[in-house]
Each structure stands twice: as structure tokens, then as C-alpha cells.
């Protein structure tokens, strides 16, 4: 099994650490699976997770050993090829988005998120960005909130009041 990765002859920066973390994670999950019901019986709730996590431990160990043997790839830098700043920035942006989504509400957070990320990635005039942001937000809002009645987090905006006051204009 160990010599089965002919195409992965070199390793990227960070690969060894990643694979080692997977081994650690797998062992932890195996321990957690064991805690469910131990090795009590084949039909216990823990039997299947135990088998799956055992497979993870085994497979991750093999992969890790393979990366130990593989020579480092040349001319590949972690910060440039594997985890460029732009990826980190967007990841951070999404993280912030998901944390504040519930308290600020969907409309506000999405507006800010779209505006910043489009401005950052597309780099046109803020007005163009604003127009694209508003347009796409309106389309998403109509599809999800109005047509499919997914009540998106309202946060600080009294959406339902606004909606009912708008509909009451028609009545």
C-alpha cells in the first residue's frame, strides 16, 4: 500500500504538518468513538464509528509515512503557492460574516460582505461595486426570503414590519 502514490512524488510545503495533524485528529476521533460504547458489541452505536475512525488512523498514518519519504517540491513557497494572502483575507472575511450574521441580520452583513469582497477582488469604482452588490442582494433576497420563505436572520432590521407595511400599501 505504501508505494501506491506514484504521482505524488514530491510534497508541498505544509503537507507533512497537515498529514501529521490528520493522524492526530484521527487518533482523537478514534478515542472519542471508543468512548461511545467501547468494544461492547457488534450492534452497539459505537461499532461503526470505531471501524471508520480506525480506517482513518490507518490511512492517515500511511499517508504521513509517504510524505516523510517524498522530497520537497522545488520552487513552491507556502505563502505564495499554498496559502496566498488573498485566500487568508477572504477566509477571515467569511469568518467575520458568519459570526455577526445572527446579531446584525442577513441584509446588513451580506451588503457589507459583498461590497468589500467585490471591491477587493474586482477593483472597479465603488459605484459599480455598489450597483452590483445591491442588484445581487435584491435578487437573492427575493428568491430566498420572498419566494421560498426562508426567514433569513433579521438581526437589528425589523424586516417583517417593513414587509407588512409595504404590503399594506397595496391592500
Amino acid at each position: 500500500m505504501s508505494s501506491q502514490s506514484p504521482s505524488l512524488t514530491t510534497r508541498k510545503p505544509g503537507e507533512r504538518i497537515f498529514c501529521f495533524l490528520l493522524v492526530l485528529g484521527s487518533v482523537y476521533l478514534f478515542w472519542q468513538a471508543y468512548k461511545i460504547s467501547g468494544f461492547s458489541s457488534l450492534s452497539s452505536p459505537g461499532a461503526f464509528p470505531l471501524a471508520a475512525s480506525a480506517a482513518m488512523v490507518l490511512a492517515s498514518c500511511i499517508t504521513f509515512l509517504n510524505t516523510l519519504k517524498a522530497p520537497a517540491a522545488e520552487d513552491v513557497r507556502f505563502v505564495y503557492h499554498c496559502f496566498p494572502p488573498v485566500v487568508a483575507f477572504i477566509m477571515a472575511l467569511i469568518l467575520i460574516y458568519s459570526v455577526v450574521l445572527e446579531s446584525l441580520g442577513f441584509v446588513l452583513t451580506s451588503f457589507v460582505f459583498l461590497f468589500i469582497s467585490i471591491q477587493f477582488l474586482y477593483r472597479r469604482s465603488p459605484l459599480t461595486t455598489l450597483a452590483i452588490t445591491l442588484l445581487s442582494l435584491i435578487v437573492v433576497y427575493i428568491i430566498f426570503r420572498l419566494v421560498f420563505q426562508v426567514v433569513l436572520p433579521e438581526g437589528i432590521m425589523p424586516e417583517r414590519e417593513i414587509l407588512s407595511s409595504i404590503t399594506s400599501l397595496w391592500r
Binding site: 500500500m1 502514490s5 506514484p6 505524488l8 490528520l22 484521527s26
Partner: peptide, 8 residues
């Protein structure tokens, strides 16, 4: 290409 990774 890598079966071990697939199994993981």
C-alpha cells in the same frame, strides 16, 4: 492517484 488518501 492515492488510495490511502481516498480511504481517509
Amino acid at each position: 492517484s492515492s488510495l490511502a488518501r481516498g480511504i481517509f
